[in-house]
């Protein structure tokens, strides 16, 4: 699946999105690519998924997220090629 905002000729960033556990089930996907208008944040990506993905509205507005394997806040900017991971609350152990 490939989701895009309606884009003009403005600059964009393309990021990989990975979803796990309950979020993978909600969104019906484990991995997708998003194209976002620059400047883009994690929050913009979440907003787009909430709007366009199947059952996206079930995703929290501020889910736990990681970019390139590090926990980050949703305000974090996204750069070309980043890997954004949507992490349900952790339950290891």
């Amino acid at each position: 699946m490939h989701l895009s905002k309606a884009l003009s000729s403005a600059a964009t960033v393309t990021v990989t999105v990975r979803a796990f556990a309950r979020y993978a089930e909600i969104l019906g996907l484990e991995e997708t690519t998003l194209e976002l208008a620059e400047p883009a944040t994690v929050g913009d990506a979440v907003k787009l998924l909430r709007k366009n993905a199947p059952n996206g509205h079930l995703l929290p507005e501020r889910p736990l997220v990681a970019v390139n394997l590090e926990h980050v806040l949703v305000e974090t900017p996204l750069r070309q090629g980043d890997e954004l991971a949507l992490l349900p609350p952790l339950a290891g152990g």
């Binding site: 556990a21 952790l90 152990g93």
Partner: peptide, 10 residues
């Protein structure tokens, strides 16, 4: 580990 490692259980 329980607070920071991304693992989930069903």
């Amino acid at each position: 580990l329980k607070k920071t490692v991304p693992i989930w259980k069903k």
